[in-house]
Design a protein around this nucleic acid. Sequence first.
DNA 1: ATACTACTAGCCGTTTTCCC
DNA 2: GGGAAAACGGCTAGTAGTAT
Length: 364
Amino acid sequence: MLFTYACADRYLEDGGILGFVITHEVFKSKGAGEGFRSFLLPESDTPLKVLTMEDMVDLKPFQAANKTSLFTLKRGEPTTYPLPVVEWKRKSGVGRVQPEWSLEEVFEKTERANLQAIPVNPDKKTSSWQTARRADLRASEVLKGTNPYKARLGARVEPYGVFWLRIKEVRPDDKLVIENLHDRGKRKVPLVSTTIESDLVYPAVSGGDLVRFGVQSHFYVLISQDAETRKGYDEEDFASNLPLTYAYLVQFKGILVKRAAYQKYFHKDVTKNGSVIGKEAIAPFYSMYNISEETFSSYRVVWKRMASKMAAMVLSTLPTPFGRKTAISTDTTSFMVARNRGEAHYLCAILNSDIVDSFIRSYS
DNA sequence: ATACTACTAGCCGTTTTCCC
DNA sequence: GGGAAAACGGCTAGTAGTAT
């Protein structure tokens, strides 16, 4: 991004045109891309006009996993919207585009759609570009506006091998015989089979468990985080009130302490004479992340976070062999809180509509 | 009262891995 | 081969705390 600006600054005269191959993220991403999308040379306030953009994300012209696009800009004039975008798509059945193919061959095996791009938020010129056919852009106008609901990320229950559980048996005294899903995550965690209290065990769903209007499957998680204090439950109380659960977690202390989020958010630097000499834990080693009181709200509308198609459902409680409990959605989902059942189902139906789905696709 | 600073919850993007 | 998910690093907006 900086390189593009430096080149426009150094090598272009007013009216000069420059073309660049660049990652598609600069047009679509929030944050980092916003500075780029001001299309203004910072020191001289010289405007830059984007003439065209070609979206080659699906084409994948390079033998790499990057998102490719191409654009041209002219120095000395401001960018105006909508601007023309060509979207390249490989025809079905065409595999990877080979570097030795001729241009004719690539033309033959691909289709190009003429689209338009506008900033998705009309009041913010640097917002992500929305690219779609002209008619679809017009249709999506009614979907834009302020949103009274706040979307949140699901609970981070990591590492999976420690906090994701399988229930083998409910004992007569209501204690659970469990096994950790030790090979579910990427990190290697030893298999442990033991008995723990049922208090902190909840049914849970990940993005992959969701379908439109329902859950396909669920599993169980251990939540050792106090949603109010945003830290693990007080270690002393925990050890005396739920000794079996505590003992289960102690076995994984080494793994839990090493977690990036734990090191980042639950440690502070210990300084001596102004220089950092070490780190000190400020919360129990089983503290978790992105778990708030909303995580446990009675009615939540939950949707897949990482999939390319919208799938939403209403999540409340789920039946378990040890009684009905609040169901947790993990961080491959997003959710928002509804005040009651009716509101939740109404929101869910709207999210699952084709109109919302195609609108989301136009700018992400 | 205002300006500045430090902190972190929440979120986003990328790479790796998994699975069909 | 390709799409989806897992894992994790990193950014930023918002806020609480502190200094002026």
